Amino acid sequence: MSLLTSLSYSPPPSALGPSSSSSFNHHKPISDLHYSSSSYSSVRTDGRSRRRLSTRFRRSHHSAVARSTTITAAVKPEPLKIMISGAPASGKGTQCELIKEKYGLVHISAGDLLRAEVASGTENGKRAKENMEKGMLVPDEIVVMMVKERLLQPDAQENGWLLDGYPRSLSQAKALEDLHIRPDLFILLDVSEDALIERVVGRRLDPVTEKIYHLKYSPPENEEIASRLTQRFDDTEEKVKLRLQTHHRNVEAVLSVYKDLIFKVDGNAPKENVFTEIDGALSSVLEQKSGTDSASVVTGMASLETSLDS
């Protein structure tokens, strides 16, 4: 929990006496100090009364500090940690853009991280490409550390993160659990297989802007863009069917790890409707986190006041 606490206290005039100074004058005669009759029935000038006055003033001072802290404490909830899953072309990319725009989360795509490795021609990239071309999952040791390092970067820690398309297997999910990486919500987009194949085969990439188009559902704005569009090597019908088989084989095992966090959405619906459902779920999570953090602050301040008064 992130807690921004402002401490400010000025003792009330009744505690300071006639002087307008904020500092307590210990050399001023006790008889010249004014206290409410509810606290003291009489003022004596012997040593025991002086000690009682000093002790009760300190308690009054500490209680006021604690009350002031409770009033001025500003609570910033922990940032959202979201996972979104679905088969290839289930609409994860579109929904991630909408979520990122509204909630400011850092979008982390395991697929993009892998493709960057493939494009760079590293040894891990070559191994990843071999598996991707066969419709197989990339070895966990390649992906897990890549994802972990990205999640631990300052922007993701401060703003929250949206992990797209990962984990994809039980072993990957367990690896994240072992690293104490767990989401607040696991969004699952459910789309029919026929629709998925149609979406994948018609998908095209603009290599200049890296924007994704679809020849039927989201065509390019003009001929210039259309002329430079390319198809990803794994976006053919043959390869997407292999990927879907792998996805279906592993998704149930992944869901078993996050069964208490799953929010299932019908991905066949228009993207605006899908986002409306997701938006409502994320708003609820934020409200719960804010309520929990606020309750913790109130409890903490109450404990502070009790300890100071004792």
Results as ranks from 00 to 15, higher is better:
Gly125Lys: 02
Gly125Arg: 09
Lys126Tyr: 02
Ala128Leu: 06
Ala128His: 01
Ala128Trp: 00
Asn131His: 15
Asn131Gln: 11
Met132Ala: 10
Glu133Arg: 11
Lys134Val: 03
Gly135Ile: 13
Leu137Pro: 02
Val138His: 07
Val138Pro: 04
Val138Thr: 10
Pro139Val: 01
Ile142Gly: 00
Val143Met: 15
Val144Asp: 01
Val147Ile: 14
Lys148Thr: 10
Glu149Gln: 12
Glu149Thr: 10
Glu149Trp: 04
Glu149Tyr: 05
Leu152Glu: 12
Gln153Arg: 15
Pro154Ala: 07
Asp155Ala: 14
Ala156Asp: 04
Gln157Tyr: 09
Gln157Val: 13
Gln157Ser: 12
Glu158Val: 11
Asn159Tyr: 15
Gly160Arg: 00
Gly160Gln: 07
Gly160Met: 02
Gly160Thr: 00
Leu162Ala: 02
Leu163Gln: 01
Leu163Ala: 02
Asp164Leu: 09
Gly165Ala: 11
Gly165Ile: 05
Tyr166Ser: 01
Tyr166Lys: 10
Tyr166Pro: 00
Pro167Thr: 01
Pro167Ala: 09
Pro167Lys: 03
Arg168Trp: 00
Leu170Val: 08
Gln172Leu: 00
Gln172Ala: 04
Gln172Phe: 00
Ala173Cys: 03
Ala173Val: 00
Ala173Asp: 00
Lys174Ile: 12
Leu176Met: 10
Leu179Ile: 10
Pro183Thr: 08
Asp184Leu: 08
Asp184Gly: 10
Leu185Trp: 05
Leu189Lys: 04
Asp190Gly: 01
Val191Glu: 12
Ser192Ile: 00
Ser192Tyr: 01
Glu193Thr: 15
Asp194Phe: 01
Ala195Val: 15
Leu196Thr: 10
Ile197Ser: 06
Ile197Lys: 10
Arg199Asn: 11
Arg199Gln: 09
Arg199Tyr: 15
Val200Trp: 05
Val201Pro: 03
Val201Tyr: 08
Arg203Ser: 06
Arg203Glu: 04
Asp206Phe: 00
Val208Met: 14
Thr209Glu: 10
Leu215Asn: 06
Leu215Lys: 11
Lys216Ile: 14
Lys216Asn: 11
Pro219Lys: 13
Pro219Met: 13
Pro220His: 06
Pro220Asp: 11
Glu221Tyr: 04
Glu221His: 14
Glu221Arg: 13
Asn222Arg: 06
Asn222Glu: 08
Asn222Met: 07
Glu223Ala: 14
Glu223Val: 09
Glu224Val: 08
Glu224Ser: 11
Ile225Cys: 12
Ile225Thr: 13
Ile225Asn: 11
Ala226Lys: 08
Ser227Cys: 07
Arg228Lys: 12
Arg228Val: 12
Leu229Tyr: 08
Leu229Ser: 10
Leu229His: 10
Gln231Asn: 04
Gln231Asp: 03
Gln231Glu: 07
Arg232Leu: 09
Phe233Ile: 14
Asp234Pro: 04
Asp234Thr: 09
Asp235Thr: 04
Asp235His: 05
Thr236Val: 01
Glu237Met: 03
Glu237Tyr: 07
Lys239Glu: 07
Lys241Glu: 09
Lys241Trp: 10
Lys241Arg: 15
Leu242Phe: 04
Leu244Gly: 14
Leu244Cys: 05
Gln245Pro: 02
Thr246Gln: 12
His247Gly: 06
His247Cys: 12
His248Phe: 11
Arg249Phe: 07
Glu252Gly: 15
Ala253Asp: 14
Val254Leu: 09
